[in-house]
Simulated scan of single mutants.
Amino acid sequence: MATIRLAPVLRSYAGGSKQVSAQGSTLGEVLTNLYQSHPSLKEQIQPEQDLSRFVNVYVNDQDVRYLQGLETAVGANDTITLLPAMAGGR
Rank of each mutant, 00 (worst) to 15 (best):
A14D: 08
K18L: 10
L83G: 07
Y35F: 15
A87E: 07
V59I: 15
P47N: 06
Q36Y: 00
H38P: 06
Q23M: 11
D63G: 10
Y66S: 10
Q68N: 15
A73F: 03
G28K: 01
G88L: 07
N77Q: 15
N77P: 00
G89V: 07
S21P: 09
L41I: 03
S40I: 06
N60G: 10
L6N: 00
Q44K: 15
L41E: 02
Q49K: 13
P39Q: 06
T32F: 00
L41G: 06
E71N: 14
I80E: 03
V59E: 05
R11F: 06
R5D: 03
G75T: 01
S21G: 15
A2N: 07
V57L: 13
A22P: 14
S25H: 12
E29G: 10
Y58R: 01
G24V: 02
Q36N: 14
Y13E: 06
L70Q: 12
L34R: 00
N56A: 09
N33D: 14
S12D: 10
L70D: 11
Q44D: 01
T79H: 03
L83Q: 10
A14N: 09
K42C: 03
Q68K: 15
G15F: 03
R90Y: 02
G89R: 01
R11W: 02
T32W: 00
P84M: 09
N33R: 00
T81S: 14
F54C: 06
S37E: 06
P84D: 13
A87I: 11
E43H: 02
G24P: 12
E29I: 09
D78K: 12
G16C: 09
L41Q: 01
K18S: 13
V57Q: 11
E71F: 03
E48L: 12
V74P: 15
M1F: 10
Q36T: 13
T26S: 15
P39H: 09
I45Y: 02
A87M: 11
S37T: 04
Q36F: 02
R90H: 07
G16D: 10
P47T: 04
N56P: 04
R11K: 08
E48Y: 09
M1Q: 08
V74L: 12
A7P: 01
A87P: 04
L34M: 09
G24I: 00
V55L: 14
D61A: 10
P39R: 05
G89F: 04
Q44L: 06
S52H: 11
D63S: 11
T3M: 05
D61C: 05
S52D: 14
V55H: 10
Q46F: 09
Y58A: 10
Q19F: 06
L67D: 08
L82T: 02
N33V: 00
Q62H: 13
E71A: 12
P8C: 04
K42G: 01
G75S: 07
A7T: 00
E71M: 08
Y58I: 04
G69K: 05
L82R: 01
I4N: 00
L31M: 03
S37Q: 13
Q49T: 13
E29C: 10
P39T: 06
Q46P: 01
G88R: 04
T3C: 05
H38Y: 15
E71G: 09
N77D: 15
Q62P: 07
R53I: 08
L70V: 12
F54S: 08
S40Y: 07
L34E: 05
V57G: 14
V64R: 11
N33T: 01
L27K: 01
G75Y: 03
P39W: 06
G75E: 07
I80C: 08
Q19C: 03
T79I: 14
V74G: 14
